[in-house]
Simulated assay, not measured.
Amino acid sequence: MSRPRCERCQRPLAHCLCPLIPQLDSRTRVVVLQHPSETAHALNTARLAALGLVNAELRIGEVFDDLAALLATPGYRPVLLFPGDEAEVLQGYGQDKHLPLMLIVPDGTWRKARKMLYLNPLLEALPRVTLGAVKPSRYRLRKAPEAGAVSTLEAIVQALDVLEAPAAFDALLNPFEALIEGQIRAMGLDVFTRNHGE
């Protein structure tokens, strides 16, 4: 029999993260497109981002039939947060009078994210943006596949911190930190140090 779960954060009730999840407003609209294989991960950072941002949503799938309508949402300029040679480094809005961004964020392994772009030509066609100087990941439970790799939540926080400076979105990382600490406690410090230590 499975343990009862919180309907909102999907964590076991004894480890509910809801009290740590903020409700932050942002000028930027954040839309996370999550590959279905990511939904069952214990560290589902995309869900935390969608819960902690008022102007965000999480969509799960590989093919998104309503993408044209989503990208035509009035009041936003859609861009894809995804690295690549043609990706522009994000800059703050500052005095920018243009429409705020709708930041489309694929969530999945690199291979699965690329497949989502391939299966959704409208995504592939979007202007791409990327982070400039990437802060080191706090994701101590996973070896990064390459330097500068961060979790989906961390990428969103860093993007919003750049776009909407001086506003800061680090409060979104509080439930993430608690989640990681809980996982480390569950595996035991010795096991964590052996498998993930320096």
Rank of each mutant, 00 (worst) to 15 (best):
R114D: 04
Y76K: 04
A168M: 14
A14Q: 07
P106H: 04
E86P: 06
P22S: 10
H98S: 13
C18N: 06
L189C: 09
V31W: 00
N120D: 09
R138N: 14
P12G: 00
P175I: 09
Q183H: 08
M116D: 03
A147N: 10
I21H: 04
G84M: 00
Q158C: 09
A159D: 02
F64M: 09
D170Q: 07
S26I: 14
Q91S: 13
A42R: 10
V89C: 06
A171E: 08
D107E: 03
P136R: 05
V157K: 03
I104D: 01
F192K: 01
L101F: 11
V32I: 15
P74H: 09
I156S: 14
A144W: 02
L141D: 05
R27L: 15
E146P: 03
V31F: 04
G94D: 07
R114A: 12
N174I: 02
S37M: 08
V30K: 01
V54Y: 15
L173P: 01
P127H: 02
E146G: 08
L153T: 04
H15T: 14
C16T: 07
N174S: 10
L179A: 09
Q95G: 04
L90T: 01
F64Q: 01
R194E: 15
H41C: 09
L189G: 03
R142E: 09
R11N: 13
R128I: 02
G75K: 00
T109I: 02
V150I: 11
R29L: 15
V129R: 09
R29A: 13
P83S: 04
N195E: 15
L48D: 05
L80S: 11
L131V: 14
E86G: 02
M102S: 00
A149K: 07
L51T: 06
A72Y: 15
L131F: 13
L71F: 08
L13I: 10
A178H: 10
S2V: 14
G75E: 04
V134W: 15
L117M: 14
R77G: 03
V162D: 07
Q91R: 10
L122P: 07
V162I: 12
V89T: 09
A133K: 08
F192G: 00
T28E: 02
V105W: 00
I60V: 15
T130Q: 11
L126Q: 10
L103A: 12
V105A: 03
Q34A: 03
G52V: 10
D107P: 08
L172D: 07
Y118A: 13
A125P: 02
P100S: 12
L51C: 02
N195H: 15
R194V: 13
Y76M: 05
R185C: 12
A186C: 12
L70I: 11
E164R: 01
L189S: 01
R8V: 12
A168W: 07
E146Q: 10
G94E: 06
L101H: 00
V162T: 14
L13M: 13
L24F: 02
D190L: 12
D161Y: 08
P22L: 01
L119T: 05
L51I: 08
E124M: 09
R5N: 13
D190E: 09
D190T: 04
P166C: 09
K115A: 09
Q183E: 15
Y118W: 14
A14I: 11
V79Q: 08
S26T: 14
L71S: 00
H41N: 12
I184M: 01
I104C: 06
E57T: 05
Y118F: 12
S151Q: 09
C16S: 13
L48H: 01
L122C: 14
M116V: 07
A14S: 08
A144C: 11
